[in-house]
Design a protein around this nucleic acid. Structure first.
Length: 478
RNA sequence: GGCGGCGUAGCCAAGUGGUAAGGCAGCGGUCUGCAAAACCGCAAUGCCCCGGUUCGAAUCCGGGCGCCGCCUCCA
């Protein structure tokens, strides 16, 4: 392992070389969902982003410990419980289950550890006591607050000056706080709310403290990468830093990595706009690999605008890759002398995609390299069929695909079976084969009229035919 | 008001000092019974605008214009 990896660090606002605290090991914590509702595309993009970062770091030889939490007790869950009459823990369990299914449905691997807040309350209480002991937090009634102004580094992540932060904001004035900027580490329970016993009475953890507790429990007081969506920079991550460093006196996370947000048809995706797209709905409309390819065709730092048009383009791009993969596999019998040009292109792609990924996980750039190799592959197939170089190119494409979590189907499976379920007008593979047989006998009789009728009929039902020298093949259009 | 970011062909999108990747759509050609796929070629003389630095800028600096995110729960 001697790859030099650079990544953009929100904390320093610069690209920096990734230097792990422990040689060859990366410890990474990513904020997971608060489980009170179904996962949406924003969760999906964050999960895919860090999934690919994890896969790539592993690919180049790091041993990655990846922690992603579930926030399973929180005001939003309690509100949902009050609205529905369903106990809070049942709500959170339900959406944890859903989240796992949804992420699996878009090929996101499970992290090393997925801790839940409710299983770490004793550790949370310990951490709060340390913060109080160090003079950075105070009890007020049955709540505990973090004293923001006492922590000199407050604002260093989000580049805010605490002294300026009150002007024009909507910070709620709570007379239990010594300063309006202070935030809750522990919240006393109101009647009927879930609670745990604590030195300050019955209550529950505030938002933020759980991530400090669980990241430090599994990764140590100082670790390498802390990630999440850009929307978490303030206040969540700012507060995590303050709490954690107030407790330990040590640097918390070294590299702060934030993925850009999703827009839907050029609008912010939000509950108030009413345009939230859930993962479970999205996967009924588009193939999961097309969704991943869509995300990964954007540099993770930038926003990504999701729409029928942009998704259609991703599906078309994915299709081009699979068509090429299928062409390549169909050449197996057609062995020929090696193709030095393709051999060079394959080797150069192998180097380039890794280099490109080393430069801040630039999947979009690397995908560009992939399409250049795709052209070289097709050119070689046209001129000489199968060759050792083709084999090498496919192998390299496989490595890259595996890192991105795409191109994992058999080409026929993708082009036929999978798309048939989604796109075609109720036709079976057997019916298609039957019509192809009939058409081919018409073709051998030079009955072009009948042959074209059959092509037309299949076309109107979403099936596209291609007459190859080896025979007629088909795939689902669109 | 404060902080951060973005503006590259019809659309999507890389590229952050060395002379514009890639995908989709389009046009011309080869191939084909016709198609499709594939390949070849064409397509931004220029990267929002105006100045500046430099041998050289989409890339750096200054000033505009436009758009967006965060500052409240949020991936």
């Amino acid at each position: 392992m001697e790859k030099k990896i650079t990544l953009y660090n929100t904390l320093t606002q610069k690209s920096e070389e990734l230097v792990p605290r422990e040689k060859n090991k990366i410890k990474m914590y990513v904020c997971g969902p608060t489980v009170y509702d179904s996962a949406h595309l924003g969760h999906a993009r964050a999960a895919v982003t860090f999934d690919v970062i994890e896969r790539f770091l592993s690919h180049v030889g790091f041993e990655v410990t990846y922690v992603r939490n579930f926030t399973d007790i929180d005001d939003k869950i309690i509100n949902r419980a009050n609205e529905t009459g369903i106990p809070a823990h049942e709500i959170s369990e339900k959406y944890i289950e859903e989240y796992r299914e949804d992420m699996a449905s878009i090929g996101v691997k499970r992290p090393t550890v997925e801790p839940k807040v409710t299983e770490h309350v004793p550790e949370i209480i310990d951490l709060i006591e340390r913060i109080i002991g160090n003079g950075y937090a105070y009890q007020s009634g049955d709540d505990v607050f973090f004293a923001v102004k006492k922590f000199k580094g407050y604002g260093k992540l989000s580049k805010r000056d605490p002294d300026d932060m009150l002007a024009g904001t909507r910070i709620d004035i709570n007379e239990k706080k010594e300063d309006p900027l202070d935030f809750a580490l522990w919240k006393g329970a109101k009647p009927g709310e879930p609670f745990w016993e604590s030195p300050w009475g019955r209550g529950r953890p505030g938002w933020h403290i759980e991530c400090s507790t669980m990241s430090m429990k599994y990764l140590g007081p100082s670790f390498d990468i802390h990630g999440g969506g850009k929307d978490l920079i303030f206040p969540h991550h700012e507060n995590e830093i303050a709490q954690s460093e107030a407790a330990t006196g040590k640097e918390f996370a070294r590299y702060w990595v934030h993925n850009g947000l999703i827009q839907i048809n050029r609008e912010k995706m939000s509950k108030s706009v009413g345009n939230i797209l859930n993962v479970r709905d999205a996967v009924t409309m588009w193939n999961r690999e097309a969704i991943r390819l869509f995300f990964l065709s954007h540099q993770y730092l930038n926003p990504a605008d999701f729409s029928d048009t942009t998704m259609g383009e991703s599906e078309a791009a994915l299709e081009r890759l699979y068509i090429t993969l299928k062409r390549a596999k169909d050449q197996r019998k057609n062995k020929n002398a090696d193709d030095s040009e393709l051999a060079g292109a394959a080797a150069s792609f192998g180097r380039k995609w890794v280099e490109t990924m080393c430069d801040d996980f630039n999947t979009a750039d690397a995908i560009g390299n992939l399409f250049e190799l795709t052209r070289a592959v097709n050119r070689s197939i046209d001129s000489r069929g199968w060759s050792p170089a083709l084999e090498a190119a496919l192998k390299e494409i496989g490595h890259f695909g595996k890192t991105l979590g795409i191109l994992e189907y058999e080409p026929e499976e993708y082009l036929q079976t999978i798309k048939l379920q989604k796109k075609s007008a109720g036709i079976t593979e057997d019916e298609i084969e039957e019509l192809i047989k009939e058409r081919n006998s018409a073709r051998s009789d030079k009955n072009w009229k009948r042959a074209d009728e059959i092509r037309e009929e299949l076309s109107s039902r979403g099936i596209l035919l291609e007459d190859k020298s080896e025979g007629t093949i088909w795939r689902v259009k669109g």
